Amino acid sequence: PDDLEKRARELLKRGKNPDEIREYLRNAGYDQSQAEEALKRAL
Rank of each mutant, 00 (worst) to 15 (best):
G29Q: 02
E20D: 06
N17H: 14
E36P: 00
E36D: 11
R14H: 12
D3N: 09
R14Y: 10
L4F: 04
R41K: 13
A8W: 03
N17P: 07
P18G: 05
A28Q: 13
G29N: 03
E5L: 15
E20L: 04
K40F: 12
P18F: 09
E5P: 05
L43N: 04
P18R: 07
K6N: 11
E36A: 05
R7Q: 14
A38S: 04
S33R: 13
A35S: 08
E10L: 07
L11I: 02
D19P: 03
R22E: 04
G15R: 02
L12Y: 06
N17F: 06
A28F: 08
P1D: 13
Q34A: 13
P18N: 05
E20V: 04
P1W: 14
L11G: 02
L39E: 01
L11W: 11
Q32F: 11
R7V: 15
S33E: 14
E23P: 00
Y24I: 15
D2F: 12
Y30G: 03
A8T: 10
L25V: 01
A35M: 08
R14S: 15
P18H: 09
E5V: 15
G15P: 00
D31R: 04
A35N: 01
D19I: 07
D2I: 11
P18D: 04
A38T: 06
G29D: 01
R14W: 11
N17G: 10
I21F: 04
R7N: 07
K40P: 00
A42G: 03
Q32H: 13
R9T: 08
K16S: 08
E5F: 15
D2E: 12
I21D: 00
I21E: 00
K16G: 04
D31L: 08
R41F: 05
L11V: 01
K40C: 07
L11P: 00
A8Q: 00
P1N: 12
R26A: 11
Y24S: 07
L4A: 15
K13R: 13
L12Q: 02
I21R: 00
A8I: 15
D19Q: 10
P1V: 14
A42T: 04
K6T: 12
G29I: 01
A35F: 10
R22H: 05
D3G: 08
R22M: 15
R41V: 07
D3M: 10
D3V: 07
E37P: 02
N17D: 10
L43P: 01
K6S: 12
D2M: 12
L39F: 02
S33V: 14
R26G: 04
G15L: 03
Q34E: 14
R14V: 12
E10D: 11
L4W: 05
R9I: 11
A8K: 00
Q32E: 14
G29K: 02
S33Q: 14
Q32V: 14
R26M: 15
G29L: 02
Q34W: 08
R41A: 12
Q32P: 14
K13S: 10
P18L: 11
S33N: 13
R14Q: 15
N27P: 00
N17I: 05
R41T: 07
N27G: 09
G15K: 02
K40I: 12
E10C: 08
L4I: 13
A42M: 11
R7Y: 15
D31I: 05
K13W: 07
E37Y: 06
A42V: 14
E5N: 08
Y24H: 10
A28R: 08
E20G: 02
A28I: 09
L12I: 08
L43M: 13
E23F: 05
K13Y: 07
A8H: 01
D19S: 09
L39G: 01
L43W: 05
L11M: 14
K16L: 15
D2Q: 11
S33M: 14
Q34N: 07
E37K: 07
A38E: 02
R26D: 03
A28M: 14
K13V: 07
G15I: 02
A8F: 05
L11F: 05
K13D: 11
K16C: 07
L12N: 02
E36C: 03
Q34P: 03
P1F: 13
G29F: 02
R41Q: 09
R26Y: 10
Q32G: 10
N27Y: 07
D19F: 06
L43I: 09
E37G: 05
P1G: 12
D31V: 04
R9C: 09
E23A: 10
A38G: 04
Y24D: 08
R7P: 03
A35K: 01
R41W: 08
P1A: 13
G15E: 01
L4G: 07
Q32W: 13
K13E: 12
L12V: 06
E36N: 06
G15T: 02
Q32C: 06
N27E: 13
D31G: 10
P18W: 08
E23M: 08
N17M: 09
D3P: 08
Y30R: 01
D31T: 15
E5M: 14
A38L: 07
L39Y: 03
L11Q: 04
Q32A: 14
R26E: 07
E20N: 03
I21W: 01
A38F: 09
R26Q: 10
R26H: 09
A8Y: 02
G15V: 01
E5T: 13
L25I: 04
A28H: 11
R22F: 12
K6I: 12
L39P: 00
D19R: 07
L12E: 01
L4R: 03
L11A: 04
P1M: 15
R26L: 15
G29W: 01
L43F: 07
K40V: 10
E20F: 10
Y24N: 05
Q32T: 12
L39R: 00
Y24M: 14
D3W: 13
K16M: 15
K16H: 14
L43T: 06
P18T: 06
P18Y: 09
D31F: 03
A42K: 01
L43K: 04
R7M: 15
R26F: 10
R26N: 06
D2V: 11
A38M: 06
R26P: 00
N27D: 11
L12M: 05
R41S: 08
E10K: 04
E37C: 08
R9M: 10
R9Q: 08
A35L: 13
K13L: 12
R22S: 05
N27W: 09
I21N: 00
E36M: 04
A35H: 01
D3A: 10
E36T: 05
Y24K: 03
L43E: 05
D2R: 10
E36V: 04
Q32L: 12
R26C: 05
R26K: 13
K40G: 07
R26I: 15
R22K: 09
L11K: 01
R7G: 04
R41N: 09
E20S: 04
E10T: 05
K13Q: 11
A35V: 15
S33C: 06
L12H: 04
E20A: 06
A42P: 02
S33K: 14
K40W: 14
L4M: 08
R22D: 02
A35Y: 12
L11S: 02
R14A: 15
P1H: 13
K6H: 12
L39D: 00
D31A: 09
L25S: 00
E37R: 06
D19H: 09
K13I: 09
L43Y: 06
Y24L: 14
D19A: 09
L4H: 04
I21S: 00
L43R: 04
E10M: 07
Y24V: 12
L39K: 00
Y24F: 14
E36R: 03
R41D: 04
G29M: 02
E5I: 15
D3Q: 10
P18E: 09
D31K: 06
L4N: 02
I21T: 02
D3I: 09
A35C: 08
K16W: 15
L4T: 05
Y30L: 10
L11R: 00
I21G: 00
G15S: 02
I21H: 00
E5G: 06
L12R: 03
A8P: 01
L39C: 04
R22W: 07
A28W: 11
A42L: 14
E5H: 12
Y30F: 12
L4V: 11
E23N: 07
D2Y: 11
L4K: 03
E23Q: 11
Y30P: 01
L25W: 05
L39W: 01
K6W: 13
E36G: 03
K16E: 05
K6L: 13
D19M: 08
D3R: 06
Y24E: 12
N17S: 15
A38C: 04
K40A: 14
L25F: 15
N27H: 10
A8E: 00
E5A: 13
R7A: 14
S33Y: 14
E36F: 03
N17R: 11
K16A: 13
A28K: 08
R41M: 09
E20R: 03
I21C: 00
G15M: 03
D19L: 06
L25E: 00
K6D: 11
D3H: 10
N27M: 13
E10P: 00
E10Q: 08
Y30M: 08
K16F: 15
K16D: 06
N17K: 13
D31E: 11
G15F: 03
D2N: 11
Q34L: 13
A42N: 02
N17Q: 11
